[in-house]
Design a protein around this nucleic acid. Structure first.
Lengths: 342, 342
DNA sequence: CTGAAAGCGCTAACAT
DNA sequence: ATGTTAGCGCTTTCAG
């Protein structure tokens, strides 16, 4: 109502100087106390801490960063609607905060392209760029990498000065195919995701494995995607065929969940009629209505490795975590079994 | 290798002064040009812009913010693993960037409690706190609100100086119950989520509606949750009963997806044997294997309203967007139909 | 239209 | 152990 001021905050922003005045010491001393570095007597420390708490003082990170020498933050571009990214972000936080680095998040959404997310990060002078599932071209990535360390997560590729940290997608798919072949399957279809970061590697793993076990001419790739929706649609396509494949591997668990739902709806039994294998070993896979056999990837470790490597590069060290291709392993549950005898 | 320096960046950070020197003007002029404010000739403007582009100069947001008067950023605490939050974040971005505000994201994860997320935001001197699905107590919220504007999204409640922006959960549930009753249902179970922000309102809506239509004594609340997993488990519980309810309403679509999956797996037909109604009208609901009838809520609008209101409060205006309780509506698909005749 | 100077909140040298 | 000074990169008066 009678609030004419442009600043309606109940409490004005408390600065270091305010705390210093309250205690009757110099600002520099407050700085020393707040950072926990040596150079203040225990008595002063206590008084400063108390005054800070009473005034509700929180050090201004932006001013700190501005004054400090090297960059001490990691810029992360991620997609908030991909729950896969959540795990990676968690891993990054774990590794970064442990090392005293701050994490600066920038979302990529339908309305907010990756380039925009990156320029925000750059404007915040983060020391490195961690791009989860980036869709930038190798040239674009290298252009950024000329400026600061760039780590691309969950996508394979090659680009000058750019690090790629990802799971061993190819080996994961190979293990899935081998497992199904071991159960006696021959007609093994693969639902691919053309646009996902690791799409090409998984597809390649499938092709390679099928060829290796002598089923090259039964190779059966169906274009799907990375969502339940795409899986359900792909399943409809499969159901329209004269006969179903005996096993289906999907790009990821979400896609497979769509397949599973649609198959159940049409009365197809899993694994009796069709065996199903997913990828990610996400929560979906372990849910009681699915119980998917799935290729596990260590998502948090992906994030931690990426953060660790980014920090190494920022600090000019060369102790990059290896392998940057993180191993995968097949987790067996109940969605795959031997094929019906013909 | 022979890289002894702690700063391994290919290009040092370019500052405004560098650009000024390159063009042969004062830093202040560069500032004027970069911000696009009046005070420079078109010719100078062009030369500065070109030099900036060539040097790859990006203004330092932290320094800008430090120098600027009022706060021009919104601090958002969200959970990256809740895809529901993604839509809200998107809405916030849309409203904020349109108004020239920056969005500062801070993740709440299993390893990173909400309090930590908030203190990071405070340290970045954002002008307001937007908390998506906050789990803080009213007292804790009010404590923060004494400092700066606080908007809680997707949770109802009452706390001094705190704004709550959420969907009309109660009315949504009422519409779901009425719809099912209209189809002839009487045994309508509700799968609740005890810990979710809007859980109490939806539960209350269910109870109220059942009582209103004279089915108060058939009220049937099952504790479930907000994930597929919880829905699947709840479905198992229902299946163990002597007889199923004729209709099930779930806290949200994800939970209902779990129910649906489990029912299909056990050979229960939807909607012939059991009718299903969800909440959120999320992507899940429209997927071909589900086709859920679901209560729609406008998630992006939630974010936009919250951002708008936060900015209003920052700037001391009083034109808060109303209603802060955003209406919901029932979207009818194929998961609910008349009950089997007894 | 352009430049010089002061200062945002903080930290890193250097004094005392 | 504590205080003083200078300056991070930028914006904002105020002169010219």
């Amino acid at each position: 109502m009678g609030e004419g001021s442009p600043r309606a905050n109940g409490a004005a922003n408390v600065t270091m100087t305010d705390v210093a005045r309250a205690v009757g010491v110099s600002p520099a001393l407050v700085s020393i106390v707040m950072r926990g570095v040596p150079g203040a007597s225990p008595a002063t420390r206590a008084r400063v801490r108390q005054a800070a708490a009473e005034l509700g003082y929180v050090p201004d990170r932006r001013a700190q960063a501005l004054r400090q020498q090297g960059p001490r933050s990691l810029g992360v571009a991620f997609q908030p609607d991909q729950e896969f990214h959540a795990g990676v972000v968690d891993g990054i936080y774990a590794a970064a905060e442990e090392t005293g680095y701050e994490v600066v998040l920038s979302a990529v959404t339908p309305l907010r392209p990756e380039a925009r997310a990156i320029s925000t990060l750059l404007a915040n002078r983060c020391g490195a760029l961690l791009l989860i599932g980036s869709t930038l071209s190798a040239a674009e990535l290298s252009r950024e990498a000329a400026r600061l360390p760039v780590v691309v997560i969950a996508r394979q590729g090659r680009a000058k000065d750019v690090e790629f940290v990802c799971s061993d997608d190819e080996a994961g798919l190979v293990s899935a195919v081998r497992y199904l072949v071991g159960l006696g399957h021959r007609q093994i279809a693969y639902l691919s995701s053309y646009r996902s970061g690791s799409g090409p590697q998984r597809l390649h793993g499938y092709r390679k494995a099928m060829a290796e076990v002598g089923l090259g001419d039964l190779t059966d790739v169906v274009t799907a995607g990375s969502t339940e929706q795409s899986g359900a649609l792909a399943a409809v396509g499969l159901l329209e065929r004269p006969s179903l494949p005996t096993a289906v591997i999907a790009f990821n668990d979400r896609c497979l969940a769509g397949v599973h739902g649609m198959l159940l709806k049409r009365g197809v039994q899993v694994p009796q009629d069709v065996s199903l294998v997913g990828f990610d070993d996400s929560e979906i896979a372990s849910q009681p209505q699915h119980r998917f056999t799935s290729v596990h990837q260590d998502i948090e470790w992906l994030g931690q490795t990426a953060a660790h490597n980014a920090i190494s590069r920022i600090e000019g060290r060369d102790d990059l975590h290896r392998p940057q291709v993180v191993p995968t392993r097949l987790v067996v549950r109940e969605s795959a079994g031997p094929p019906r005898r013909t």
